[in-house]
Computed example of a mutant assay.
Amino acid sequence: MFTGIIETLGTVVKIEKEQTNIHYYIKSEISNTLKIDQSVSHNGVCLTVVDFEDSNTIHKVTAIEETLQKSNIGHLAVGDYVNIERCMVANGRFDGHVVQGHVDQIATCISKEDLNGSWLFTFQYDASTNNVTVEKGSIAVNGISLTVVNAQKDRFSVAIIPYTIAHTNLQQVTVGSTVNLEFDIIGKYVARLLGNR
């Protein structure tokens, strides 16, 4: 389980395809603290560390076809930034919200507005999947715990402070970019229960 508080930015340094899988080699400040078989969130996708390179300063993860179909991980290119978060420790502070690392779907950035000190991003997604947002509720965008504003049936906005821009890959997101969405777990259970009535 994660909290959506990004620890560091990693950089994609190498990509290898093997059958339907893609291996990503990520260089980050915390790569040398990771262990084989450890679960780490990469842009909100829980991936397992499978190997290391360059004196453990680069870690390797593998995305399988299911992950590539449900997320934007397959769009990564060498040089791209990746939001990285290790699993929450049991006695840690819960600064974000419950994030499982299971991406529900992708969304497209349809607006990025500079508010002279902050930014307002608007993302549109396929509403036929029945995922919902609520005003002032939580959502994970590329693994970042954010607060929803202007919740609508197929879109929502998030207001971003300069610190978040500087320390996450939202700095690379422009109109037309895709992002990973994980909707609030409580909202998903409520929607499922109501749908079964």
Results as ranks from 00 to 15, higher is better:
73 I>Q: 05
89 V>P: 02
82 V>D: 02
79 G>Y: 00
92 G>I: 05
78 V>F: 04
72 N>W: 04
78 V>L: 03
79 G>V: 01
99 V>M: 04
117 G>E: 13
104 D>N: 14
78 V>W: 01
96 G>I: 04
114 D>P: 12
99 V>G: 02
119 W>I: 14
95 D>A: 13
87 C>G: 09
121 F>S: 09
98 V>R: 05
85 E>P: 07
77 A>W: 03
105 Q>M: 15
81 Y>N: 13
80 D>T: 05
120 L>W: 10
86 R>F: 01
80 D>N: 15
97 H>S: 06
89 V>E: 05
108 T>G: 08
109 C>T: 13
115 L>N: 15
98 V>D: 04
112 K>N: 13
116 N>T: 13
90 A>D: 07
107 A>L: 07
90 A>W: 01
91 N>K: 14
102 H>T: 10
106 I>R: 11
121 F>T: 11
108 T>E: 13
117 G>C: 12
108 T>R: 13
93 R>A: 06
106 I>N: 09
96 G>H: 05
88 M>K: 00
73 I>P: 00
102 H>K: 08
82 V>C: 02
75 H>S: 09
73 I>H: 03
113 E>W: 11
103 V>P: 00
87 C>Q: 09
79 G>H: 00
119 W>E: 13
98 V>H: 08
102 H>D: 08
117 G>Q: 13
94 F>W: 13
83 N>H: 03
112 K>W: 11
77 A>M: 12
88 M>F: 03
118 S>E: 13
110 I>K: 07
93 R>Y: 05
87 C>Y: 00
99 V>R: 02
120 L>M: 14
77 A>T: 14
109 C>V: 14
97 H>I: 07
85 E>F: 01
93 R>P: 06
89 V>F: 02
76 L>E: 02
83 N>M: 00
76 L>I: 01
107 A>P: 07
92 G>A: 12
107 A>N: 09
100 Q>W: 04
78 V>S: 04
120 L>D: 11
118 S>P: 06
86 R>A: 03
90 A>T: 07
95 D>K: 12
90 A>G: 10
100 Q>M: 08
91 N>W: 12
112 K>I: 09
86 R>S: 06
120 L>N: 11
77 A>R: 11
105 Q>G: 09
94 F>V: 14
86 R>Q: 11
95 D>V: 08
107 A>H: 07
84 I>V: 10
90 A>F: 08
80 D>I: 07
100 Q>K: 10
114 D>Q: 10
92 G>C: 06
119 W>L: 12
108 T>K: 15
95 D>I: 12
105 Q>L: 15
100 Q>S: 10
85 E>A: 06
104 D>P: 14
118 S>A: 14
83 N>C: 01
78 V>Y: 01
98 V>T: 07
86 R>L: 02
90 A>N: 09
